[in-house]
């Protein structure tokens, strides 16, 4: 009981939860990116991958629930910690300088909220297909298994400039979030020791940049008609 109480009540406990769930979600983003990049290998590869993901309904939902739990815990900690932080300084400064803190680190709440809103839109768009309901009918059959024509959906979706723009902004903020989040994970879990901090900070920024490029490559290529 002590463990749970400390984990969810104490400041450091919630930071541990925050870091651990953040790391899980980071892993999901990386896998997602690798999946996305298959669009460059053509329709068959991407659709094949999409069908693969849906091999087992139980596994899929297990995975979704785990993700949802991680998002939930991440959000719970973020909100309660932020509320604590607001309370910790009832009267603010007239003049305030950031003192070495990066923009990304100071705007985690903003980037987090926008990313969360973007994810909702993204799920409605591609997973439940409620933004463009036509998508629901776009199915294909591949090697005897039926599935959605994800490739067609992606190409259609991103050929609409505002959708692509929203996506790029969303992914950009996600990566800003990650550029601080990655090193923050190592810090909050105490996985960094003297001397390694500059390397971890640089690695966090590099990882975020790679993810941004990987993610943004898809809509950009579709808009530029490199992929159709």
């Amino acid at each position: 009981m002590n463990l749970l109480v400390n984990l969810f009540r104490s400041s450091l406990g919630r930071k541990l939860v925050m870091g651990a769930t953040g790391a899980g979600l980071f892993g999901f983003v990386v896998i997602h990116m690798i999946g996305n990049l298959q669009v460059f290998a053509g329709a068959e590869v991407l659709n094949q991958y999409a069908i693969l993901l849906r091999t087992s309904e139980e596994l899929l939902w297990g995975f979704r629930l785990a993700l949802l739990a991680m998002v939930g815990l991440h959000l719970y900690c973020a909100i309660t910690l932020t509320l604590d932080n607001r309370r910790a300084r009832p009267a603010g400064y007239q003049d305030k300088r950031p003192l070495g803190a990066t923009i990304a680190s100071r705007t985690m709440m903003v980037s987090g909220v926008v990313v969360a809103a973007f994810i909702v839109f993204h799920i409605l768009h591609f997973t439940t297909r409620d933004i463009f309901t036509d998508y629901k009918a776009w199915t294909i059959e591949l090697h005897g298994r039926e599935g959605h024509d994800v490739y067609r959906m992606v190409v259609h979706g991103f050929s609409i400039p505002w959708v692509s723009a929203a996506y790029i902004v969303g992914v950009g903020l996600l990566c800003a979030h990650l550029s601080h989040g990655v090193q923050s994970f190592f810090q909050s879990l105490g996985l960094v020791s003297t001397g390694y901090q500059p390397i971890i900070r640089a690695a966090g920024v590099a990882a975020a940049l790679i993810i941004f490029l990987g993610m943004a490559a898809v809509p950009v290529s579709i808009l530029l008609k490199w992929v159709s």
């Binding site: 400041s11 450091l12 919630r14 930071k15 541990l16 910690l81 604590d84 932080n85 309370r87 910790a88 300084r89 950031p98 003192l99 070495g100 803190a101 990066t102 680190s105 100071r106 985690m108 601080h180 090193q183 923050s184 190592f186 810090q187 909050s188 879990l189 105490g190 996985l191 960094v192 020791s193 003297t194 901090q197």
Partner: peptide, 28 residues
């Protein structure tokens, strides 16, 4: 007190230059 969000403004303001590595150590 509020919670650490690892912005490291503390280290920049510290008149003795105490390193935020100690925060990582305490977290561990």
């Amino acid at each position: 007190f509020g919670n650490c969000s690892n912005t490291y403004a503390c280290e920049a303001a510290c008149p003795k230059g105490i390193s935020v590595n100690f925060i990582a150590r305490m977290n561990r």
